[in-house]
Every structure is written in C-alpha cells, then in structure tokens.
C-alpha cells in the first residue's frame, strides 16, 4: 500500500531517470515536473483538463498532467517533451510550420507522438479523436494535421471521417 499523508520525498521515473522529488499529496504531476524538476516543457494553461498543453506520457499513454497527482505517477514511466529526442513528429512540426507561439506545442507533440507509436496506421477519424484533446489558439490546425499525417503510415486503413 502506497500512502502519502503529508509532504514527503517520492521517487518518480521521468524520461528514463529516477528522480527524487518533494511533493504534497495534493500536488499535481504538472506542478512537480515544473517546479521540482525544472521540466517546464509541460505547460500550465487551463489546469482544468480542457486544453492539453500539459500533456505528458504515462507508460506511453497521453495524460493531462494537471489532472494527475504526482503521487499517482509512482511506479509508472513518465515521459515529458524533454524526453523526446529528435523524434519524427518534432521534425515534422518544424517542417510543416505546425506552431506559432509554441505554448501548446509540447502537449500537441506528446499526444501526436503517442498516437504515432500506438496507432501508426491511424486514419482521419482516430487522428481527430485524439488531437481534439488539445487546443491551439494560433494556428487553424491545418499545419498540425499535415505534421501528424506526415509521420503516420501513408495509407490509412480507416475511412475518412
């Protein structure tokens, strides 16, 4: 049984490293990643699960880190944008001009990366379902669509939505 009844040290597995952090039980993962580990790539924006700017991967699945307690991440592999190195989706975001201010970009890239790993043959419907979890206020989503499509398999198996 894992209990955390007050602020204490916990060990998180972040980007392939074991890191000790001091967390309150009520601290969100987003807060701890940023304030304790300086991993500021994950962005605070709505802190309400509505915008996706704080998306990280937990065991490979996209999760909004503003709505996860740090203590819940114990025993799971956390990947933040800082843990992605020269991945195809990062290159595609540059090539396709898929960002402007860049504040939503980390969250979008993490979600896209997970999608491309979990469903490399995703069609339009799956892409849309996944990426509607993130908001971008600068682009009209056209370039983000091009970026994700460029890293997925060329011939989608699903019909277009």
């Amino acid at each position: 049984m894992v209990n955390l009844v007050k602020m204490d040290l916990i060990e998180l597995a972040v980007n392939g490293e074991k890191r000790l952090v001091m967390a309150r039980p009520a601290d969100t993962l987003l807060h701890v990643l940023r304030e304790q580990l300086g991993l500021t790539g994950s962005k605070p924006s709505c802190k309400n699960g509505d915008c996706g700017a704080c998306t990280v991967l937990i065991d490979g699945q996209p999760i909004k880190s503003c709505l996860m307690l740090a203590v819940e991440a114990l025993g799971h592999e956390i990947t933040t944008i800082e843990g992605l190195k020269d991945s195809p989706i990062q290159r595609a975001f540059i090539d396709k001009f898929a960002f402007q201010c860049g504040y939503c970009t980390s969250g979008f890239i993490m979600n896209c990366h997970a999608l491309s790993v979990i469903h490399p043959d995703a069609g339009d419907e799956t892409i849309r379902e996944w990426l509607q979890s993130n908001l971008c206020r600068c682009t009209g989503y056209e370039e983000i669509t091009e970026a994700i499509k460029s890293v997925l398999a060329q011939e989608p198996k699903e019909n277009n939505g």
Binding site: M1, V2, N3, L4, V5, P25, A26, K47, V71
Partner: peptide, 17 residues
C-alpha cells in the same frame, strides 16, 4: 494547484479501503 492539503492512500483490497 490545489490550495489545501489532503492525505493520499492507496489500499490494495476492498476491505482495506
């Protein structure tokens, strides 16, 4: 940011919970 503290428990059985 949750402005107050709470304690977190993670039981492994229904009875424990």
């Amino acid at each position: 940011m949750i402005p107050f503290d709470f304690a977190y428990y993670q039981p492994s059985s229904l009875a424990e919970a």
